[in-house]
Design a protein around this nucleic acid. Structure first.
Lengths: 333, 333
DNA sequence: GCTATAAATGAAAGCGCTTACATTTTAAAT
DNA sequence: ATTTAAAATGTAAGCGCTTTCATTTATAGC
C-alpha cells in the first residue's frame, strides 16, 4: 500500500505538500496540486486513516452506543445516524451496551480509546454522575432518550410522559374505564416517564390508578405475553391494556389470540414506539409514534454542528410523540 | 490522558517494559510487572488504541459490512458477530452497503483503510472479481451468504436452494398444485438459488413451472403486497404463494386480509428466513429457518481462528435450512 | 531593477505506541 | 569466585501522517 512518502516522491514535492492537497488546507498552487493528484491516482494511494488520526488527533469517526444491535428501534436509530454522518464523510463505530452498567461503561471507554471525535449514546444503565464526568473530561457527546438536567442541551429526547398520556387518553376517550398497564423495567427512565403519563391521564379523567392492574415487563415481546397471563390471573377485570412498547403489545395480542380473547372487540391494545412492523400485525396496532429516525438524524446533526463545525443546522432537542390510531383499539361497549 | 511514557516514568522502568506488560508478551519479572500495573492504575492509564494500531499494524477490530443496519436479519447477524468477538477482546466496526455496488466498495475500502484486521462481508452487489482481488491484496475476509467457488473456504452460507426446495415441497405435500412465487431481486445470488430450489421441487413433483405465476419483489414488505396484487390480476389461479423472505410473506398476508382473502384457508403462505417476528404474525408464518445467528457466530469464529490464531475452533461453512411449520400453510382442499 | 510583502513549499518534530537489537542482571554450572 | 547462558530490561528506530516554523519563490509597487 502506497504511503504519502511515495506520492511525494513521484510528484516531486514534499510530504507536507501532499498532506496539504489531501486536506485542501492552505493554498497549494494549482499546478502542484495537479501533479500530486496525478501521482496519487497513479499509485492508487489511500491515506492511512489510523496514521491520520494519530497525527491529527481527529478520527473522523463518531461512536454510537445502542442497547442492542438488533431490534427495529435501534436499527432505525443506527441507520439514521450513519446515513447522516456518511454524507459528510464521517464514519460510525457502533457498540452495544445491553442495558448493563458495566458493559455500557466499557463500550463508552472503548469508543473514547478509539479516539472517536464524538459519541452518540443511548445509555440506559450508566449513572448520571458518570455522564457528567464525561463532560468534564472534555468528551463531546449527545444523549438520546435520556434527560439529565445539567446536560440539557445534549439531550435529544421524546416527551415520553406526553406519549404515555396520549395512549391512555385515547382509550379513555373510547370509553374504557378499566385500563391495565404493562410497563417497561421501572429502573429505566423512559419506562418511568411513560407510566407517569399514564397515571396523569387517569387522574385527569378522574380514574384512580390501581397498582393491581399494572405489570412490570422488560420491553421484550415475551413479557407482553407473560404480562397478559399475570393480569388475567391476578388483576381485576379490564377492557384494554396499554403497553409501554410495541414489542410487548405484540406479545399481548399473540397471547390473547391463544387464550381466545378477541382483539380489539374484547380487549383493546395500545403500544408505544410505532416500530416498523406495528402496521403489519393483526390487527394493526394503535401506538404512539416515536420519531426515532428523526431523532437519530438530529443527534448526528448536533455532532456535525458542535464538533465538525458545520453551520446552519437547527438543533431541536425535544420531540413530540403522536398518536397513531389503527385497528387494535376500539370503543368500549 | 496519561501516556505510556508517564506510566514508565512513574513505575521507574522503560517504555518497552510497560508495553510488554500491556501485551504480556515476553517475560517480565513479576516484581516489575506489579510496579507497572500499579502505576497504570494510579494514572488511570488507557492505551491509545490508535497509536497501538499504527505501531503494530494490528487494530484488534474487525470490519463488518451489512446491507442495512436495520431489519431483523442483519440485526441478528451483527449481534452474533459482536457477541462472539467481544468475548475475545476484539471490536466490531459496522458499515452498510445498501446493496449498491458503489457503496459496498466504498465501505469495504473504508474498513481496510481503518486497518481492520479482517472483514466479515455480506456483500451482494460487488463483483466476484473485486472479491477475488481482495484476496490477492492479502486482505483477510469471510463472506456470509455468498458463494464463489475460488473462495470456497471463505464462504459461510446457507444452502438456499435446498431451502427453496423445502418450502415448495412442503406445499406440494399439502396437496397444492398451483403455486405462485414471489422472488427476491433476481440479480441477488440468494434470490436465484431460492428460486432454483422452488423450480426443482416443482419438477420433482411433475409440475411445470409457470413464469406467469412468478413475481419479482425486492425483499421489502411492501413488495409482498404489490406482488399479491399483481398475481391476483395477471396470474392464473393459485392456492398458495411461496415468498423468498418473511418480510414479503408478511406483506402478502396483510394485503390478503385487506382483499378479504383468508390465510390460510383460501391461501397458504410460506416465507423464508424465520425472522424473529414470523412467530408473531397472524397467522404465524410457516417458513424456512435461516440460522443467521449461528452463521454470524461462525464467521466470527473463522476470523478468530485464521487471523487471531485461536485454535480448537471447528469451522463449518455450509448450513442446512430447516422447515418451520406454523399456521399459515394448510392442506389444499 | 530592487525592495517589500504575500504565497507556496519544505524541513523536521512530533502523535503514542511496538519491536528488533543491544545491554544489563540473574541464575546455573564449574 | 568465575564463566556462561538465559532472562529481564533498556535503547532507539520506526508506523504514516499533520503541522509549525523557516525558507524559497512569485507578485507588486516604486
Amino acid at each position: 500500500m502506497a504511503t504519502i512518502y511515495q506520492v511525494s516522491e513521484l510528484a516531486g514535492v514534499s510530504l507536507a505538500t501532499v498532506s496539504r492537497v489531501m486536506n485542501n488546507n492552505t493554498k497549494v498552487s494549482d499546478k502542484t496540486k495537479q501533479k500530486v493528484l496525478k501521482a496519487m491516482a497513479e499509485l492508487g494511494y489511500q491515506p492511512n486513516s489510523i496514521a491520520q488520526s494519530l497525527a491529527s488527533n481527529r478520527s473522523n469517526s463518531v461512536g454510537v452506543l445502542v442497547s442492542e444491535l438488533h431490534g427495529p428501534f435501534f436499527g432505525d436509530m443506527m441507520s439514521a445516524i450513519e446515513d447522516t454522518l456518511r454524507l459528510e464523510g464521517k464514519h460510525t463505530i457502533i457498540t452495544s451496551g445491553h442495558s448493563d452498567e458495566e458493559r455500557e461503561r466499557a463500550s463508552i471507554e472503548f469508543l473514547i480509546g478509539r479516539k472517536c471525535d464524538a459519541l452518540i449514546l443511548h445509555a440506559e444503565a450508566v449513572t448520571d454522575e458518570y455522564l457528567l464526568n464525561l463532560e468534564s473530561r472534555g468528551i463531546e457527546f449527545v444523549l438520546i432518550n435520556r434527560y439529565i438536567k445539567q446536560l440539557e442541551n445534549r439531550c435529544i429526547r421524546l416527551d415520553n410522559k406526553q406519549g404515555g398520556y396520549l395512549a391512555t387518553q385515547h382509550l379513555i376517550k373510547l370509553g374504557h374505564q378499566k385500563l391495565a398497564y404493562i410497563s417497561g423495567p421501572k429502573w429505566k427512565q423512559d419506562a418511568q416517564e411513560r407510566l407517569q403519563g399514564h397515571k396523569q391521564a387517569l387522574t385527569d379523567a378522574g380514574i384512580d390508578f390501581d397498582e393491581a392492574l399494572c405489570f412490570e415487563g422488560d420491553y421484550q415481546q415475551s413479557s407482553g405475553s407473560k404480562g397478559l397471563d399475570w393480569l388475567c390471573e391476578h388483576a381485576p377485570k379490564f377492557s384494554c391494556v396499554v403497553c409501554a412498547n410495541d414489542e410487548m403489545a405484540s406479545g399481548v395480542m399473540t397471547r390473547a389470540r391463544q387464550l381466545g380473547i378477541n382483539v380489539p372487540s374484547e380487549l383493546s391494545v395500545v403500544g408505544f414506539d410505532n416500530i416498523i412492523y406495528a402496521n403489519y400485525l393483526y390487527p394493526t396496532l394503535t401506538t404512539i409514534d416515536y420519531p426515532i429516525y428523526e431523532m437519530g438524524r438530529m443527534a448526528a446533526k448536533y455532532i456535525l454542528k458542535q464538533v465538525y463545525e458545520k453551520k446552519n443546522l437547527d438543533i431541536e432537542s425535544v420531540f413530540v410523540p403522536k398518536l397513531e390510531i389503527r385497528d387494535s383499539s376500539i370503543e368500549y361497549v
